[in-house]
Design a protein around this nucleic acid. Structure first.
Lengths: 315, 315
DNA sequence: TACGTCCATGTAGAAACCCTACGTCGTGAA
DNA sequence: TTCACGACGTAGGGTTTCTACATGGACGTA
């Protein structure tokens, strides 16, 4: 029962095709196929079966793949222990993020990591609309994702390690001259009749907009939908509507042309997580980056505490 | 960080010399030395240092070896899951035992395992005097050992998995005509002034003899010391003294020439364990044998329940 | 001091292993 | 039918990792 072959099976379970596994492991498909064949012979039972042009795992294959994940965790844990012993969190860490999360956290994280020699962090941003963020953990060591619910359980279901980084309130963004800008805090019923600059279907904020309309007892009039908050901000600044924006990141180029107001009466916040494949989460270099992420997230929250003097609890 | 090399380091930690590791893994010492050198280079720190003619592990080496044990457990756990999936506890299992334990349990175990095709159990007995039983787990999948204390903790300290099989009362063996044979049960004070056939220094029963002398307030007169109970039985049968014997195994060829009597007033029993290296304990074939051992032990206790109607508790 | 033994380790070569290159086959879409 | 794609076979080469054998240091003994 060779570990390298087990790892290949685990990748196959995750990626679904031999070609993809080959690409991810920098091998030719033939090599992967041969190794899986050997594993199958050792196992004594078919692990895959044909399905159209490709293959799918059998029940047996999936069972073995799951145990392969445990082995991978043990191995990474061992090498992490070892790196700890040398106190040497060296290596390359790749990270994918949604845009506003990267904007808010990553510059600070990079600065914090400058002190750690030999650790390089490769960041890239992904489009929340087109990408399945938990699935990105196959290709990145760390994936920053946000969710409307604070439970880490929705990630855990898919056998992914999730570390909560912060909770960011969602504020109402108004143009400076807007009548509601007079008030310090807004309630759902204040927002009845407004034109909204919303987000594409399925974005986390969507749920908050629905919550508001439900609390206010009146449907919201969403006149535009943008995935990129900079466009939303431009529209709000231009007086074309109001919007929900994450309060620590909102503003940007339009900081002086947008007013943010707390929303009371309903829970309006997003939760930001670091998602990782469990074996990658063991790596010392990865854990070092996660620590920096946590520290930076805490610093961002602390720096903005004046905006939200009372932490709002769900209820 | 190659797993095979890790395993080699783990063996080195356990066996102490490259030559021994080579013998145990069916390699030449040169091969082991080379692999360890590669591991050392990967690790970036010395793992061994010279000590006289041989070598010893550095602190770093020991730390890495410990983590290697965890990896080995994970791998064995995976292959066990796999064997379970096939419902196929096939393979070879080696077992070492102390003599009376083997005599009492192994024939029944072999019979129980006949039903399991493809599983072969290789048994051999070891001399309790000359062998360090926990250390035998390096060379045997399962080691049967007995101890005066019921806590599994005394094995666990050395990172060995221990499964308790049974508790066997220690009885007083008398020649049939002995005056004490008239009594159904004996107390420590009944035994003052007797001549004893004892065990070599350090044997588990030794402690019980000491307990008796302490409870009776009088030193025991040990006239002979034998490791093999058959010799002890022969001496008792010949009227040369009385002895302490495990009650389920005592008798043998001398069953009609020896009388066994319960000892009350002090705890007199031995505890029989199956000891295993944690990774070997994961193997399905090994677990199957342990299950058979447990079942057989329970059967032996049940078959002898008339001898000890009330289970005696420590106190 | 000389010698034998034991253990680790170096070198050279052989064997095993695993990958790539390339070709074939079957499936599904145009 | 043709093309694209994915899996799988074969042949060959490169790498890895073993064995055989030699070297050298440490310890015990004559």
């Amino acid at each position: 029962m060779d570990v390298r072959r087990l790892e290949l099976l685990r990748e196959l379970a995750e990626r679904g095709s031999i070609t993809e596994v080959a690409r991810a492991t920098h091998r030719t498909p033939s090599a992967v196929s041969q190794q899986l064949r050997v594993l199958e012979r050792e196992a004594g039972l078919p692990l895959t079966e044909k399905a159209g042009r490709g293959i799918v795992l059998t029940d047996a294959g999936r069972a073995l793949a799951r145990s392969a994940a445990d082995v991978a965790v043990a191995i990474e844990h061992a090498t992490a222990l070892w790196d700890e012993f040398r106190n040497d969190p060296t290596g390359e860490v790749s990270l994918a993020t949604f845009p506003t999360g990267g904007q808010m956290l990553l510059p600070g994280v990079m600065r914090r990591l400058e002190a750690v020699g030999g650790l390089t962090l490769h960041c890239s941003d992904r489009d929340p609309e087109s990408d399945d963020f938990p699935a990105l953990t196959s290709d990145f060591d760390i994936v920053l994702a946000h969710s409307a619910s604070s439970a880490a359980a929705n990630w855990q279901a898919s056998e992914i390690a999730a570390v909560k980084l912060m909770t960011e309130p969602l504020d109402i963004a108004l143009p400076p001259g807007h009548p509601l800008a007079e008030k310090e805090e807004l309630l759902p019923e204040d927002l009845i009749g407004e034109n909204w600059i919303g987000v594409p279907w399925g974005y986390p904020f969507e749920r908050t907009i629905l919550d508001i309309s439900q609390a206010a007892g009146s449907p919201m009039n969403v006149v535009q939908r943008f995935g990129d908050t900079r466009v939303t901000e431009a529209f709000v600044a231009a007086g074309l509507g109001i919007a929900i924006l994450p309060c620590y990141t909102a503003g940007g180029a339009y900081r002086s042309e947008i007013v943010l107001r707390n929303l009371h009466g309903i829970v309006s916040e997003r939760h930001i997580f670091a998602l990782m494949r469990p074996d990658r989460a063991e790596r010392l270099a990865v854990r070092t980056v996660v620590d920096a992420l946590r520290a930076e997230a805490a610093a961002v929250v602390a720096a903005n505490v004046h905006r939200n003097p009372v932490p709002r609890e769900r209820g």
